[in-house]
Design a protein around this nucleic acid. Sequence first.
RNA 1: GCGGGUGUGGCGGAACUGGUAGACGCACGAGACUUAAAAUCUUGGGCCGCAAGGCGUGUCGGUUCGAGUCCGACCACCCGCACCA
Length: 717
Amino acid sequence: QQAWFLKLWRRGLVYRKEGLVNWDPVDMTVLANEQVIDGRGWRSDALVERRKLTQWFLRITDYADELLESLKTLDRWPEKVRVMQENWIGRSKGLRLTFPFPDDVPEGFGAGVNVYTTRPDTLYGASFVALSPDHPLTAILAAEDDRVAAFVEQCRKGGTSEAAIETAEKLGFDTGLEVIHPFDANWRLPVWIANFILMDYGTGAIFGCPAHDQRDLDFARKYRLPVTPVVLPPGADPNTFEVVDEAYVDPGVIFNSAFMDGMEIEAAKAAAIERAEKLGLGEGATVYRLRDWGIARQRGWGCPIPVVHCETCGVIAVPESELPVRLPEGMDFSRPGNALDRHPTWKHTTCPSCGGAATRETDTLDTFVDSSWYFARFTSPDAAEPIEGAAADYWLPVDQYIGGIEHAVLHLLYARFVTKALRDEGMLSIDEPFAGLFTQGMVTHETYRKQSGEWLDPSEVEIVSEGATRRARLKSDGQWVVIGDVEKMSKSKRNVVAPADLADTYGVDAARLCVLSDSPPERDVQWTSAGVEGAYKLVNRVWTEFDAEPVIEPVDAARELEFRRATHRAIKAVTDAIEGWRFNSAIARLHSFVGVVRRFPEGGPARREALSALARLIAPFAPHLAEECWQRLGEPGLVAATAWPTYDPALAEDDERVLPVQINGKRRGEIRAGAGASDAEVEKIVLDDPEIARRLEGLSIRRVIVVKDRIVNIVAA
RNA sequence: GCGGGUGUGGCGGAACUGGUAGACGCACGAGACUUAAAAUCUUGGGCCGCAAGGCGUGUCGGUUCGAGUCCGACCACCCGCACCA
């Protein structure tokens, strides 16, 4: 990992930058944007702080376009995950534009305010320019003016925790500065600082067009700024159209806009971009929501970042011959913070460049770096180089990947990026790591805690039902406990039920069947062992059939054929269900098939065929049982090493069909017809049927619809 | 607010491209075996109704010979993103 990390560094995909980072005060480490959920650390749940630190980043934004575009090739990924990544990358197209300062603005402010907009067509509706509280210009102003500093302080206060409440209130501060409208040298606009402008997005500054943006409108109304509509809704009168409480954001024709008048929105955008570029004040730009990936962590157990810091040479890579940089023994994890940094000797070393005293980097790599390429390493785990090309080419991409939805924009995005970066480094020859993705559901359970707040294990709790109300108390002393929400099982909330308990009582095969049989694997399930009795019965019934001495009876050809048909239907149904990831349906079919086998106890080739198929069909769900059954049949070797059973399509289809007969869409009876019987044949059988005839008494038949092998509907009045 | 998803018996859930709604399992009722119980086996349950029959897949409407499935509007819940310019 260190070897390819250094290769990417030389490629310019790794860089260090001082900036605001997400600091988790409980885990005492930096977090990536993707690891901050609702303003809290994804592991610790602590409120994340913004800190200014020098950090290591991977330039994932270099690949933003490709990461977005090649999502389209992932046709075996869930739509949901593709949409989540698309939104996370968040590409938008627009214009980066300078609003120049007039000549009287003091030195140090630069040429003007750079803004980003996706609506250059509304430039003539501009009524102010606004800066983020974190904008460099804001910082200059704050240094000179206490009132600005106080305002910035006020904006920062609410912070992420109160985000929901704060969103409603727009706060602004008029700096007194003015800028010139890029398209009209005589038009001056005030420059405000506003709390709703994010430094992280675009340029950290906007122009406000209140008539066509709701936030800008809220802001303009509060601070009494002009509202000039420039997009006319279809059918509206340009002389009377007004925007009052609701910004107009739908299609229309541009007006009040000089050279753009009369244009549709898209044409006006293009015209505005062209004009801005001609004036040298702006350029068309694509902006992403995606930020570079902060990869350094202050955790002593991580993979060390293989560089040293030298006072004379700066940041120097550890030579490849000295890799890997290993962690030391004897780190002190008893205190929070970076145990690696605290280690008495590890970090002291010499500079590979000048030989002088130097210190090792004590930040380590985020574990998501490890999981971003392990699938490639696994193709050649003993190779001296990070990835052996031939092995990777043979195995990759991963045909079928399985994971939880929680990795939709974490692991799955990082792994895609690293794959592309390693490909460009010549270490891989694939564009995407995972050809197929299946997101399995979460297993959830109620949570329980004592009045004191301490989490309790479900096994410590006893549920008491009194009519409709459920209460819970401690088994040990009867103390009442609080029943909490149903949540994903987690160690921290202790709402975990160990499958081992189930396996101890019913055996691993029954436990497996129970887990798989209830609901489809992509769905979240609220854990209950209620179904385990059914699974246990299935295991016992199957074994009973294999263990029984065959009843030898004269062969009844018709019965034997019926049995064989049932066997082949079962093989088809179970196979189809497994291939469609419907394991619960597959197990349902196995239940039915065992019922069939029980009804045909007489020994003979048909029974042997059925038992042989049954052992193999149940093997993925109950492998131990299947091997016992296989041995009992006297078959050589293991089921696990035996081919999956195949079915004869002719036997899997019935030769006679039961067709429901509807009259005016309501089911009124059924008839039997040979498979593939023609419409005329079926119609004749239906009309000859006495029950149907009785139902049709007094009605005249308008139409008879026969759907081959399925249904008959008679339209009559 | 935007984006995505899900709504079917007492419960988990079936139903292929529109074609018998409720497979299979759990729980429940009845019966057999048993001195008895457990286990096992058989059997019955969508709802209303004595029956004939009627009503039923979140709600309302539409398309169709026929809708759980398709279309429109809405409701509820879940997930993701969220002042993204």
